[in-house]
C-alpha cells in the first residue's frame, strides 16, 4: 500500500541563471526514489519557504552559485523558523568557500555540497538524516 516518500524541494535562490547542477541533483534524487519539487530559477527566500510549507517537504535543497549564500541561506533558514517550520533539513549546494562553512553549520545547515560532489553522497546524506527522525 501507500508508503512514505522523502519529499525534497530543489530551489535556486538569487539571480544566477545556471540550473544545470540543480537539475542533475534533482534527477539523482528522483532516481533514488524521492519526490522532488523543482521550482526553477530566481526564487526569493519567501517563495522558497512558501513552497516548502505547501509541499510539506522533508528537505529544502538550495543551489547557489552566485556567491550570495551568506545572505540567502540565513534568510531562508530564518523564514522557515518564523513560519514554525522546525522539522526540515536544509542542505546547500554550490560554490561555498571553506571559511563560510562554520557559519552555515551554526545556523543549522548540515549538508553542504561543493561542485563535483558525487550525487550518491547527497542521496546517502539525505537518507541518513531523514531516517534518523
Amino acid at each position: 500500500m501507500a508508503e512514505k516518500k522523502i519529499r525534497v524541494l530543489v530551489a535556486k535562490p538569487g539571480l544566477d541563471g545556471h540550473d544545470r547542477g540543480a537539475k542533475v541533483v534533482a534527477r539523482a534524487l528522483r532516481d533514488a526514489g524521492m519526490e522532488v519539487i523543482y521550482t526553477g530559477l530566481r526564487q526569493t527566500p519567501e517563495m522558497i519557504v512558501e513552497a516548502a510549507i505547501q509541499e510539506d517537504v522533508d528537505v529544502v535543497g538550495l543551489s547557489i552559485l552566485s556567491g550570495a549564500h551568506m545572505t540567502l541561506v540565513p534568510r531562508v533558514v530564518n523564514l522557515l523558523r518564523d513560519n514554525g517550520v522546525d522539522d526540515v533539513l536544509v542542505v546547500v549546494g554550490g560554490i561555498i568557500p571553506d571559511e563560510d562553512v562554520p557559519a552555515l553549520n551554526e545556523i543549522g545547515v548540515r549538508g553542504i555540497f561543493g561542485p563535483g560532489t558525487p550525487t550518491q553522497d547527497i542521496v546517502e546524506f539525505i537518507r541518513r538524516e531523514i531516517g534518523d527522525r
Binding site: 534533482a26 528522483r30 532516481d31 533514488a32 526514489g33 519526490e35 522532488v36 523543482y38 526553477g40 517563495m47
Partner: peptide, 13 residues
C-alpha cells in the same frame, strides 16, 4: 525508481 520530479510550480511563480 518510484521517485518523481514535480515541476509544475516552475510555471506558477
Amino acid at each position: 525508481s518510484g521517485g518523481a520530479i514535480l515541476g509544475d510550480r516552475i510555471r506558477m511563480r
